[in-house]
Amino acid sequence: MAPTDLKLYQIGTFAAGNRLLDPGDRSVQADPGRASSITSGHRACQGCGEALGARFVLDAAMRAAGGEIVIANATGCLEVFSTPYPESAWQLAWVHSLFGNVAAVATGVAAALKAQGREHVRVVAQAGDGGTVDIGLGCLSGMFERNDDVLFVCYDNQGYMNTGVQRSGATPPAARTANTRPVGSEPGNVFGQGKDLPRIAMAHEIPYVATATVADLRDLERKVEKAMSLRGARYLHVLVPCPLGWASASQDTIRLARLATQSGLFPVFEAEHGVVTATTPIRRRVPVEDYLTLQGRFAHLFGPDGRPDVVARIQAGADRNIDRYDLVTVVDPDGVDHV
C-alpha cells in the first residue's frame, strides 16, 4: 500500500480511525480480507503492545508477500502467549526453536527455500529486545553480515518481560525492573549502558533499518511493506509498551508509544545501507516527564523523594536523540497532537 499524504492524528481520546479514510488508504487491519496472522485467544496481557505490534507487522508482511511467509520466533512473551499447547494463535507457518538463535533459524529457513527454488516464500524472524540485543546478538550480527534474506523484527518492550521483568540491554536508564530496584544512590537501571541496536544494525550496512512504534500503525505497516520490497538482511525495531513491565495502565499503551517519540526518547527513522534516509519529525515536543510519570517503573523519580537530577539526565538523553536525528527542524503549523 502506498504511503498516504493524508494526516490524521488522535485527538484527545477520540480516535480518528480508518473509517474516515478512503478504503484504499485504510490500514491493513481495516481490510475485511486481511490475513489475520495472529488470532484472538492468545494470552497476552490486556493492552500488550507486543501483541498489537506483531499483529500489524505480520498482517502487513503477509499482504506484501501474498501470504507466502514463514515466521521464526524467539523465546519470549510473544512465543509463550501465542502457543500454549495444544493451542496456537498463529495462522501462518511458524517455528520456535530457542531464545538466542532465531536469526540463525531464519537464515536456515531462507537457505532451504533458496535451495528448493522457492524464494518467493519470504522469511520473517521476530524476537523481544532480550532475544535481539542480548542473547541473540551473535546470531543476528552474523545474519546481518552475511546479508541473509530475512526481515528481523525486534519488539522492544525494554526488558525481559517473559521471565518477570528483568533488565535487558535495552532497558532505559533509571527504570525499575525486578533486578534493578529503585534502591541505593543510583536507583533503577544504570546510565550509560544498553545497546542501540538500530545503530548497530546500520553499522552492518544492511539494505534497510527502520524504527517504529505501535502509536503510528500506518507508519509501521508502511515500513514493513518497504522492508518486504527489498531482499537481503532487513531490521525493524518496534517500540511496544508493556503494561505489566512498565507498570502502566493498559489503555495507555498507544499514548506511551507516542510520548516516547514526541519526547525524543525513541527516535523514529529509516536507514538504507547504513545511511539515515528519513526521520519522523516531532510535531509537538513534550518533556520527558510527560512520558515518565505515566509509568510505575519510573515512579521513584517523582514525588517528595524524587530525583529531578535523574530526570534531567534522562531529558539530556532525549535532547541528544533530537539533535542526532534532527527531529524538531520541521514544524507543522497545523499540528495538533494532544496526548
Binding site: 540463525a104 533459524v105 536456515g108 533458496k114
Partner: peptide, 27 residues
C-alpha cells in the same frame, strides 16, 4: 543445489540446520 552457510558459531550452525530442516531441506 546446496547452500553452504558460513555461520558465526556452532550454535548458529546447528540453529540454521534446525531452520533449514524444518523448512524441508536435507541438512
Amino acid at each position: 543445489p546446496c547452500e553452504y552457510l558460513m555461520v558465526e558459531s556452532e550454535f548458529g550452525a546447528l540453529s540454521a540446520c534446525i531452520g533449514a530442516s524444518a523448512a524441508g531441506s536435507r541438512t
